[in-house]
């Protein structure tokens, strides 16, 4: 079941360093929200706050995040992460075969039934339309795969857990053009089955697949709304500057 997510007045700090400031947004179940913005703008930090991986790095929060109406801070972090999948920008695969990696999350959560594992792995492949391409690779060693395929395996591993919310942190950073197209097609296929938050530096990617888009600069949401509306008719000057590339010109001039 796709989850509804609501972030209200969220501040996030690492020690004295403020990363996110007074951040609020809402995502409807099954929608894809793209987070765009310059590097160090807070996109990855927001994703890590949503599955509380930021806790591991000593983050402190103010404000609230509701997942299906329940505060994530009142939930056990392990239980939360079972409902919220995440794909980091650089794939980290475990030892073993591609199959072992796809079902790694299920095994780590205590699933032992071989038939059930196979069914869930095949389900994830089918969901992403990768059955033909990846079924012959299931017995291959995962570390022998090229980087784009490793990223897809990391994606499949997160998807095999059937998450309610999927966090993708620049998933196409290590992909070539074909890989990006494959990833976007897969995202379109899973649309509606889980809510997706996609942090990306590629505006075109956000334009192609996201229902809503939010622009984050210096830990603040500058503008947030429907993707088509935000791209064609930005309300804020900063958004317009960012979309047209003038933001970077000004940033370099101010240096």
């Amino acid at each position: 079941m796709p989850a509804a997510l609501s972030v209200s007045n969220l501040d996030l700090r690492y020690g004295k360093k403020e990363i996110l400031r007074d951040l609020s947004l809402e995502i409807l179940p099954g929608h894809i929200l793209a987070l765009i913005g310059p590097e160090e703008g807070g996109k990855s930090s927001l994703l890590r706050a949503l599955n509380r991986m930021a806790d591991e790095e000593g983050a402190s929060y103010c404000g609230n995040i509701l997942l299906n109406g329940e505060s994530i801070f009142l939930k056990d972090a392990v239980t939360l992460r079972r409902a919220v999948g995440m794909v980091p920008p650089t794939p980290v695969l475990f030892r073993g075969t591609v199959f072992d990696n796809i079902v790694a999350g299920l095994r780590l959560q205590g699933q032992r039934n071989g038939g059930e594992l196979r069914r869930l792995a095949e389900g994830a492949l089918a969901q992403m339309g990768l059955t033909e391409e990846y079924t012959p690779l299931l017995g291959e060693r995962a570390d022998s795969l090229p980087l784009p395929a490793r990223q897809m395996v990391a994606f499949l591993r997160a998807l095999a857990l059937e998450p309610e919310l999927l966090l993708l942190d620049e998933p196409s950073r290590s992909l070539d053009a074909a890989g990006v197209a494959q990833m976007e097609e897969a995202l379109c296929r899973i649309k509606g089955r889980c809510t997706v938050l996609l942090a990306t530096n590629t505006l075109q990617q956000a334009g192609r697949i996201a229902d809503e888009t939010a622009l984050l600069i210096n830990g603040r949401i500058v503008e947030y709304g429907e993707t088509a509306e935000l791209f064609s008719n930005p309300r804020e000057k900063q958004t317009e500057d960012y979309l047209t590339g003038r933001y970077y010109e000004r940033a370099s001039l101010s240096l």
Binding site: M53, V78, A83, G85, M86, V92, G105, L108, A158, L161
Partner: peptide, 8 residues
């Protein structure tokens, strides 16, 4: 960290 992200 990857293990944690998978809810282990």
């Amino acid at each position: 960290r990857a293990g944690k992200m998978l809810g282990a």
